[in-house]
Amino acid sequence: MTDALLQNPSSRTFDIRKIVADLGYPSHWNWCWENYKPTVIELSRARGLRRHLEIGAGRDPLFQPGEAAQLGLDITLNDISAHELSLAPSGYGKVVCDIASPQAPDILGRDKYDLVYCRMVMEHVPNVAAMWRNINAILAPGGVALAFFPTLYAAPYVLNSLMPEKLSRFLLETIFPERKQDGGDPKFPAYYNYCFSSEARMMPMLRQAGFSEAVILPFWGYAYFSKFPGVKQVDAAFNRLAERRDWRSVSSFAYVIATK
């Protein structure tokens, strides 16, 4: 698969592409889940990005305090929910605020962080363009943002966006009981605003947010239909075809790595 750039490759862009290549990026969905943390670590190591902000960290931050200390990282956790953030381990700075709000840059600190990242958060934000603008504002010059999110128009997310929230929650919790509200991975309403791996849809918004360059990595596949024989096989075959042909409009997930 090819990646997309906001402008002609520079040494900094080449660095991002090399980091991803060294991690062995393929476009199958298992890789994006298994290599999210290694990608954050490698970006940090390769570019000396020590001051981190994890957006939407909630109860399940990417790094445990001992890992952060071992890696020499200064990590701040953010979430819109004080309750979710209260369930995170102690040992971090914690900031409760809506990352897309006009006040977020002043609350979190302008030009403060070297690396800002989030996983499975952007689909829950109604105004993702505002979120990217705020991420740019809180990044130090030369800082990097990494966003990992599901993308339209993969079938499960189209269905989720069309269903009433109560119905989609019931179906998800019936098929995957671990996703119940009292479990460790609750479901939240999803909007899928700017959740695309298409350059045509994403690049103008990233430019307007103030980023100088970006790499988009698409992925295909998921496990949502794993308990439906027949449907599972047909859907998997379609995703393999879409992956081979680089059909971004039906990708399942994406990494966006953007530099201020």
Rank of each mutant, 00 (worst) to 15 (best):
residue 228 F to V: 15
residue 75 I to G: 02
residue 214 A to S: 14
residue 25 Y to T: 13
residue 128 V to G: 03
residue 173 E to M: 09
residue 79 D to H: 01
residue 166 K to P: 08
residue 228 F to A: 15
residue 119 R to A: 10
residue 39 T to H: 07
residue 126 P to G: 00
residue 252 S to V: 02
residue 33 W to Y: 13
residue 89 P to W: 03
residue 175 I to N: 11
residue 117 Y to A: 08
residue 145 A to N: 08
residue 15 D to M: 15
residue 101 S to I: 01
residue 196 F to N: 10
residue 168 S to C: 13
residue 220 W to N: 03
residue 74 D to N: 12
residue 99 I to C: 09
residue 181 Q to H: 12
residue 167 L to D: 05
residue 111 D to Y: 07
residue 69 A to T: 07
residue 38 P to K: 06
residue 41 I to P: 07
residue 231 V to F: 14
residue 12 R to Y: 02
residue 88 A to F: 06
residue 243 E to R: 15
residue 72 G to D: 01
residue 28 H to Y: 13
residue 165 E to F: 15
residue 140 A to V: 04
residue 145 A to Q: 09
residue 3 D to N: 12
residue 196 F to S: 13
residue 181 Q to C: 04
residue 116 V to E: 01
residue 243 E to F: 02
residue 185 D to Q: 12
residue 253 F to A: 08
residue 119 R to G: 11
residue 51 R to Q: 09
residue 33 W to A: 13
residue 128 V to P: 03
residue 218 P to G: 10
residue 25 Y to H: 13
residue 171 L to A: 06
residue 47 R to L: 13
residue 130 A to L: 07
residue 90 S to A: 14
residue 9 P to Y: 05
residue 35 N to P: 06
residue 2 T to Y: 14
residue 73 L to M: 05
residue 152 L to A: 09
residue 84 E to P: 07
residue 197 S to P: 06
residue 97 C to H: 11
residue 112 K to T: 14
residue 15 D to K: 15
residue 156 P to E: 05
residue 213 E to G: 15
residue 105 P to A: 03
residue 125 V to I: 14
residue 160 N to Y: 12
residue 195 C to D: 03
residue 146 L to M: 09
residue 25 Y to C: 12
residue 138 I to K: 02
residue 46 A to Y: 01
residue 121 V to Q: 00
residue 245 R to G: 10
residue 196 F to Q: 10
residue 87 L to Q: 14
residue 103 Q to D: 15
residue 207 R to S: 00
residue 115 L to Y: 05
residue 227 K to I: 05
residue 76 T to D: 14
residue 33 W to P: 04
residue 114 D to Q: 11
residue 190 A to S: 13
residue 101 S to R: 00
residue 188 F to W: 04
residue 60 D to I: 11
residue 122 M to A: 12
residue 64 Q to W: 02
residue 139 L to S: 02
residue 193 N to G: 10
residue 90 S to G: 12
residue 148 F to R: 08
residue 10 S to Q: 08
residue 43 L to P: 01
